[in-house]
């Protein structure tokens, strides 16, 4: 059977998720995110969260609803470095 892509940004498959749980002792969505990179890409998990939760819950044999969402991080959506740098300069001149 072919592997299923769970996170399209980081090309993480259901097999990667299973390895994170079996080989690296991941027990939470945040841990699976940290170990596999699922949800660490450009969409920051907005696209893959439900699918990831379903696969993790199935592997751990628990209810999906019992799994907490991974942490959300600043700046939420990608912000150009050049824009951040301009904002930093403006602050220094204020």
């Amino acid at each position: 059977m072919c592997a299923v892509t769970v996170c399209r940004c980081e090309l993480v498959t259901d097999e990667d998720v299973a390895r994170a749980i079996d080989d690296w002792d991941a027990r939470t969505l945040n841990e699976v995110k940290l170990i596999t990179r699922a949800g660490k890409g450009a969409c920051q998990g907005r696209c893959c969260f439900s699918l990831l939760r379903a696969f993790v819950a199935r592997r751990l044999e628990i209810e999906p609803a019992t799994l907490q969402a991974p942490r959300l991080r600043l700046p939420v959506r990608p912000v150009p470095m050049a824009l951040l740098a301009v904002l930093a300069e403006r602050r220094e001149h204020e």
């Binding site: 600043l74 951040l84 740098a85």
Partner: peptide, 28 residues
């Protein structure tokens, strides 16, 4: 995280590695 720090990373980082201006900050 603080906005002043992530702005400083961009400004100070671009000063030594200008190619940083070609990408975006994703997460902190």
């Amino acid at each position: 995280n603080t906005y002043s720090s992530i702005r400083r990373f961009a400004a100070r980082g671009m000063q030594i590695l200008p190619a940083l201006s070609g990408t975006s900050m994703l997460r902190a």
